[in-house]
Simulated assay, not measured.
Amino acid sequence: MSLTEGVVRILEDQAAEHGFTRVKTVWLEIGELSTVVPESMEFCFDAVARGNPLTEGAKLEIIRVPGTAWCMDCSKSVHVTSRVDLCPDCGGAKLAVTTGEEMRIKEMEVE
């Protein structure tokens, strides 16, 4: 719930800065390796947005970002589903996560 409240606060800050009065759609990127559960964000967004003239009725679109890492053993970018995965190509353990940990507002449609 607190993450969703944070998203709404960011929208309120942006509305004050840029002068829009209503958010119609928010596109939120959520990484596969983040601790954020997209379904929970969708559920909480409806609850948090309700009663707020800026966000009430706004649609939340979740963009899921796959987890990827750079394998330092075989020099390949590979898909991972956990921070402790081994390289699916060579079995190496020296992986540096490159995507999938993020949660950010990518885009919004406003009036």
Rank of each mutant, 00 (worst) to 15 (best):
V110C: 01
R22S: 12
P38L: 13
C44P: 02
V110L: 00
D73L: 06
T25A: 11
L3C: 08
G57F: 08
S77N: 13
K94R: 14
A49M: 03
P53R: 12
K24Q: 15
E42P: 02
T4F: 01
V97G: 03
E61Q: 14
G51I: 09
S82N: 06
K59N: 12
M41A: 14
V37Q: 14
K76F: 04
D73Q: 09
A49W: 00
M108R: 02
M1H: 11
K59Q: 13
A69I: 03
Q14I: 12
T99E: 03
L3I: 15
C44W: 13
V26P: 11
G19N: 11
D13E: 15
V7R: 02
K106V: 02
E32T: 10
K24Y: 13
A93N: 12
M1I: 05
K24P: 08
F45R: 06
G6Y: 01
G91R: 04
P38H: 14
V26N: 14
C87H: 01
V37A: 15
T98A: 03
R9A: 11
C74Y: 05
L3Q: 09
V110P: 01
M72C: 04
A49I: 04
E101V: 00
L86H: 06
T55S: 08
G92N: 04
L60R: 06
H18T: 12
K94H: 13
V23Q: 13
I62E: 07
L54P: 06
C87W: 00
L54Q: 08
V65Y: 09
D89R: 06
S75E: 10
G6F: 01
V7S: 04
C44F: 14
T4I: 02
L3R: 08
T35I: 13
M108W: 02
G91N: 06
D73W: 01
A15P: 12
L33F: 15
C90M: 10
D13S: 14
E56L: 07
A15K: 12
E101F: 00
M108Q: 02
T98W: 00
C90K: 05
I105H: 01
G31Y: 11
I10E: 07
M41W: 05
L60G: 08
E107N: 05
G91P: 03
R22F: 05
L33Q: 12
T55Y: 02
G92A: 07
F20G: 14
E12A: 12
D85F: 00
F20L: 13
F20W: 10
P38S: 13
H79V: 03
H18Q: 15
G6P: 00
E12G: 04
V23R: 11
W27Y: 14
E102V: 04
E101C: 03
V65N: 08
V84W: 06
C44S: 11
S75L: 05
K106M: 01
T98D: 02
E56V: 10
A93H: 07
G91V: 06
I105A: 02
F43Q: 09
V7Y: 04
L54N: 06
L60N: 07
E12K: 14
T55N: 04
R9H: 11
A58C: 08
E101M: 03
R83N: 13
C74T: 05
M103F: 12
R22I: 08
A15R: 11
Q14D: 13
T35C: 13
S82A: 10
E107W: 02
E107M: 03
T68K: 07
A58E: 04
N52D: 15
G92L: 03
T81F: 01
T21G: 15
T21F: 09
V80M: 01
V48I: 15
T81I: 02
P66V: 04
T99F: 00
V84G: 02
